[in-house]
Amino acid sequence: MKTLRSKFRSAALALSASGVLLSAVSSLPARADEISGDQPLIVAAADCYSIGQQVAAQNGGTLAKASSATRGGQAVCVIVVLVPGKDGERPRRSEFVVPQN
C-alpha cells in the first residue's frame, strides 16, 4: 500500500510539473513577428556561457558555472572558473562578475 501511495504521489507531481511547463510555453509567442517591443527577448544564458568560456581561457582554467544576475540594477554574468593548483594541489575556485553586453 505504501509503494502505491508513493507512485501516486510521483505521478501527481509529474502531472503538475507538466501543467506548469505547458502554461509557461503557451504564453510564449508562436512566431517571431508576434514579439512586440514591450516583450524582452532574453538570451542571457547563452551570452553568459560564451563570456564564461572566454574568462576561463584567459585564466587558464575550466568553466564550472555561468549564470546571469542583476547587481545594482545592471545585468551581469557570474562566472565560476576552476584554475588548476600548483604542484598537483586542488584546483582553485575563482569567481568573476562581468557586465553583460
Rank of each mutant, 00 (worst) to 15 (best):
G88M: 14
L28Y: 05
S27W: 12
V20G: 11
L41N: 12
A24D: 07
L22E: 15
S16W: 09
Q100P: 14
K7T: 15
Q58R: 08
A64K: 02
G85S: 13
D38N: 11
S36C: 06
A75K: 12
Y49M: 01
S68K: 05
D47N: 10
R92A: 06
D33N: 00
T62R: 12
S18I: 14
T70V: 09
L41D: 15
A57M: 02
I79L: 10
D33Y: 03
L28H: 12
P40M: 11
S23P: 13
V25Q: 08
A66C: 06
S67V: 10
V25R: 07
A45D: 02
P29L: 15
V78S: 02
S94H: 06
G85D: 13
A66H: 03
I42C: 02
L41S: 14
P84H: 06
S68A: 07
F8K: 07
I51C: 00
S67E: 15
G60D: 01
L4Q: 05
T62P: 14
T62F: 12
R5F: 11
S50T: 03
A14V: 11
G61L: 09
V76I: 02
A12N: 03
S94G: 14
G60F: 13
A14C: 14
S10D: 13
G88W: 15
Q54M: 15
G60R: 11
G73E: 03
G72P: 03
R92T: 13
P99A: 01
K65W: 14
L82A: 14
K7R: 05
T3K: 15
P84A: 15
I51N: 02
V98E: 05
V20I: 09
A45N: 03
V81T: 05
T70G: 03
S10E: 12
L21F: 06
S67A: 04
